[in-house]
Simulated scan of single mutants.
Amino acid sequence: MAAVRVCGVDELVENQASRFVLDGVPIAVVKDSAGDVFAIGDTCTHGDISLAEGFVEDDTLECWAHGSKFSLRTGKPLTLPAYEPVPVYQVEISGGDVLIDPAVTVTV
């Protein structure tokens, strides 16, 4: 699958995650205060919880249910109880649009 448009950059609220489902894959997309856009798997690896409902702080996304924080850059959990990473997806910005290919994860 090729990268598809998920939204416009200007549709994203700074430091707030948005949930998108691409080809059956739930993805949390975040625009930080510097304007960088990140895309990680939307399901917490500790429990079946949407990370997009969590809290963004700096370059982390915190699960609202159990408090695990995940790096937006690497997908690695930074706090317990999660110990497995979530996938990270490559983000392309083209003409003000956010493009993501849910079949391609980034290894960091």
Results as ranks from 00 to 15, higher is better:
residue 59 D to V: 11
residue 47 G to L: 13
residue 50 S to I: 01
residue 42 D to K: 02
residue 61 L to H: 11
residue 44 C to W: 01
residue 55 F to Y: 15
residue 49 I to A: 14
residue 52 A to W: 00
residue 51 L to G: 03
residue 54 G to H: 09
residue 58 D to Q: 07
residue 65 A to T: 02
residue 65 A to V: 02
residue 42 D to N: 09
residue 64 W to Y: 10
residue 50 S to Y: 08
residue 74 T to M: 03
residue 54 G to N: 11
residue 43 T to V: 15
residue 45 T to N: 13
residue 66 H to M: 04
residue 60 T to M: 04
residue 45 T to P: 12
residue 70 F to W: 12
residue 72 L to K: 01
residue 42 D to P: 00
residue 72 L to P: 00
residue 48 D to H: 09
residue 55 F to S: 14
residue 73 R to F: 03
residue 52 A to K: 05
residue 64 W to H: 09
residue 57 E to K: 15
residue 71 S to L: 09
residue 65 A to K: 03
residue 69 K to P: 10
residue 71 S to N: 15
residue 48 D to W: 12
residue 71 S to Y: 15
residue 65 A to H: 01
residue 57 E to C: 12
residue 71 S to T: 14
residue 63 C to K: 06
residue 70 F to K: 14
residue 57 E to S: 13
residue 68 S to Q: 10
residue 59 D to H: 14
residue 61 L to W: 08
residue 54 G to V: 05
residue 59 D to C: 13
residue 59 D to F: 13
residue 62 E to M: 13
residue 70 F to P: 05
residue 70 F to Y: 15
residue 54 G to Y: 06
residue 67 G to N: 09
residue 50 S to Q: 03
residue 67 G to F: 07
residue 69 K to C: 12
residue 69 K to L: 11
residue 48 D to F: 13
residue 49 I to L: 13
residue 66 H to Y: 02
residue 70 F to R: 14
residue 74 T to Y: 03
residue 51 L to E: 01
residue 46 H to D: 00
residue 62 E to V: 08
residue 74 T to Q: 04
residue 65 A to G: 00
residue 59 D to K: 14
residue 47 G to K: 12
residue 52 A to E: 12
residue 50 S to T: 02
residue 62 E to S: 14
residue 42 D to L: 01
residue 53 E to H: 10
residue 50 S to E: 08
residue 53 E to K: 07
residue 66 H to A: 05
residue 68 S to N: 10
residue 55 F to N: 13
residue 48 D to S: 11
residue 55 F to P: 05
residue 59 D to E: 15
residue 51 L to Y: 07
residue 67 G to L: 07
residue 52 A to I: 06
residue 47 G to R: 11
residue 70 F to E: 04
residue 73 R to H: 08
residue 54 G to C: 10
